[in-house]
């Protein structure tokens, strides 16, 4: 499926179930999400995390409703299943899409300016460097007997300083490779929206409405 439309669909679904209270639809969505996730053959560890990590906020929300409100078990169940629907539907989109595909699709199909697409992509590829930079900053602090916590301004200050010099370098590198802001571009990889992409989007949303209203009326 076209990456832009896939993310649009996942977001619309998540948005809609935020305001509806049908737990069976939530379970159904979670199951469909899970099937898509399984089809992408994730590692066992990732799969286990997908089940365990949402359990914490899901239980927390359900218990809070039971103990701190008069909304009852039905609403607790809705909130519990809603968290799983979010996570599985959301992960079904992210686990089956490469960042570069999404960004290229957003540029070609959703027509966001190319400077945003390539600027984001360029910065995103520095991710491993950034992770090691955070470790370096903390280690440098430790060597001077200064422990940097997530509430220490120095940690963020040093991170922003590093970002300043990297962004300068990266922007210059891109410019010297011929990148011109707002210039018309041609694409080596063409990403198209085909009719069945729209088909999947519209049919999925229609089925969701049918399921929501059908089960709600019962």
């Amino acid at each position: 499926m076209n990456p832009s439309l896939k993310f649009l669909l996942a977001i619309l679904i998540a948005l809609e179930i935020s305001f509806t209270n049908v737990w069976m639809v939530n379970v159904l969505l979670a199951v469909i999400g899970l099937i898509i996730i399984l089809a992408s053959r994730p590692s066992i560890k990732r799969l286990a995390l997908l089940f365990v990590v949402p359990l914490i906020p899901a239980v927390a929300l359900a218990v809070a409703i039971l103990l701190q409100s008069n909304a009852g078990t039905h609403f607790a169940l809705v909130l519990f299943t809603r968290i799983y629907a979010y996570v599985f539907v959301g992960s079904a989109a992210t686990l089956t899409t490469q960042v570069s595909d999404l960004v290229m699709s957003l540029e070609q199909n959703a027509h966001i300016p190319s400077k945003f697409a390539y600027g984001f992509l360029g910065a995103f590829n520095l991710l491993p460097k950034i992770i090691s930079e955070v470790n370096i900053i903390r280690a440098a602090g430790n060597m001077r007997g200064q422990q940097l916590h997530f509430w220490s301004p120095q940690l963020y200050f040093k991170a922003i300083l590093a970002s300043l010099s990297w962004s300068e370098n990266l922007a210059e590198a891109m410019t010297s490779h011929g990148f011109v802001e707002d210039a018309p571009r041609s694409y080596y990889t063409q990403i198209q929206i085909r009719w069945w992409d729209w088909g999947i989007l519209i049919v999925s949303l229609a089925l969701l409405q049918v399921a929501l209203f059908g089960l709600h009326l019962q």
Binding site: K115, F116, Y118, G119, F120, G122, A123, F124, L126, L127, I130, I131, E133, V134, F150, L155, Y156, A159, I160, A162, S163, L164, W166, S167, E168, L170, A171, M174, T175, F179, E181
Partner: peptide, 19 residues
């Protein structure tokens, strides 16, 4: 918004993401 600002903003966002 220029290329450099976009990269800078994304880098800062990534740093926050990592933290």
């Amino acid at each position: 918004w220029h290329l450099r600002d976009i990269i800078l903003l994304t880098l800062i966002a990534i740093f926050f993401g990592v933290i």
